[in-house]
């Protein structure tokens, strides 16, 4: 179904990038977990009360008394939405648009491998990277949490939160892959992929900023990743991230369909 040779080639050229992003996430993840101090939280609460707007902007406006809430607040509210997005943007753009833009797609197509198989291989590689990134981070936080504060992390909720994050990242990946498969130039592919996702993020930040803008949350699909709802076990929040998965997959299909049919300027 996929081309093992191509998958291996992408692995060989992409592992450094994956390593760099894993390292950055490791640093932030471990740092935030270490910072958790139940007694110290009162101090943080004071800080939040003193400048509620600024903290809310980054999705950190909730007072967090448990380790699970603390982590979801300070890591999943912003950092884990943005760093993997940058990775996805770079990777998705590399996987199709870069080959078309540089012309080396000609060599990939001058083989007995169908366009559909090429696209599926690249798609699978992108998903593989994202799953690896989320799985690694989940494990890292569980291990660090258990080592520092045994028994304090609510593991089932935390796992569900990561399943939700994976939904959000699948949606990002769908959008970026679609842009990469539809456009002939990396410039356009990047502009559309990055432009849309950054716009969604900004709208989300604004909608967090105060009641005046809270209506804006309906203007960004990122609202479907509802951290508070997931931790509270709200079924609506689960449906929310399932919709993100579905939208991501729909975009994968649309991008692939365009790529296998269209004229390529190579």
């Amino acid at each position: 179904m996929i081309s093992a040779a191509l998958f291996k080639r992408e692995m060989k050229s992409g592992w450094k990038l994956l390593l760099i992003f894993s390292a950055v996430l490791t640093m932030y993840g471990v740092m935030i977990v270490i910072m958790f101090d139940p007694k110290f939280m009162d101090g943080i609460d004071v800080m939040i009360q003193s400048m509620p707007g600024l903290m809310a902007l980054f999705g950190m406006g909730e007072s967090a008394s448990s380790l699970t809430h603390f982590i979801s607040n300070y890591l999943y509210g912003f950092l884990l939405q943005v760093f993997p997005l940058v990775f996805i943007l770079i990777m998705a753009n590399r996987l199709i648009a870069r080959y078309v833009d540089s012309g080396s797609m000609a060599y990939l197509l001058a083989t007995p491998i169908k366009r559909l198989r090429l696209a599926l291989t690249q798609l699978l590689f992108l998903c593989f990277c994202i799953v690896l990134l989320v799985a690694y981070f989940t494990l890292l936080i569980i291990l660090t949490g258990e080592a520092m504060f045994p028994g304090q992390l609510e593991i089932p909720q935390f796992l569900l939160l990561n399943l939700g994050l994976l939904g959000l990242l699948t949606f990002y990946a769908g959008l970026c892959f679609f842009a990469s498969a539809v456009f002939n130039e990396t410039k356009k592919s990047n502009a559309v992929g990055a432009g849309l996702t950054i716009a969604f993020l900004l709208i989300q930040m604004l909608s967090n900023a105060g009641d005046k803008f809270s209506g804006l949350k309906y203007a960004t699909p990122l609202t479907l990743f509802d951290i508070k709802g997931i931790l509270a076990g709200d079924p609506g929040a689960v449906i929310g991230f399932l919709i993100l998965y579905a939208a991501g997959i729909a975009l994968f299909i649309a991008g692939t369909a365009s790529f296998i049919r269209r004229d390529l300027p190579i």
Binding site: S13, S102, G103, S104, A106, Y107, L109, A110, T111, P112, I113, K114, R115, I266
Partner: peptide, 21 residues
Amino acid sequence: KSHEIQKSLGYLPGEIALMND
């Protein structure tokens, strides 16, 4: 049927764009 044809075809593009990495 491009994938079938490629089994017995060799192609040299006019613009050489190999993979730089």
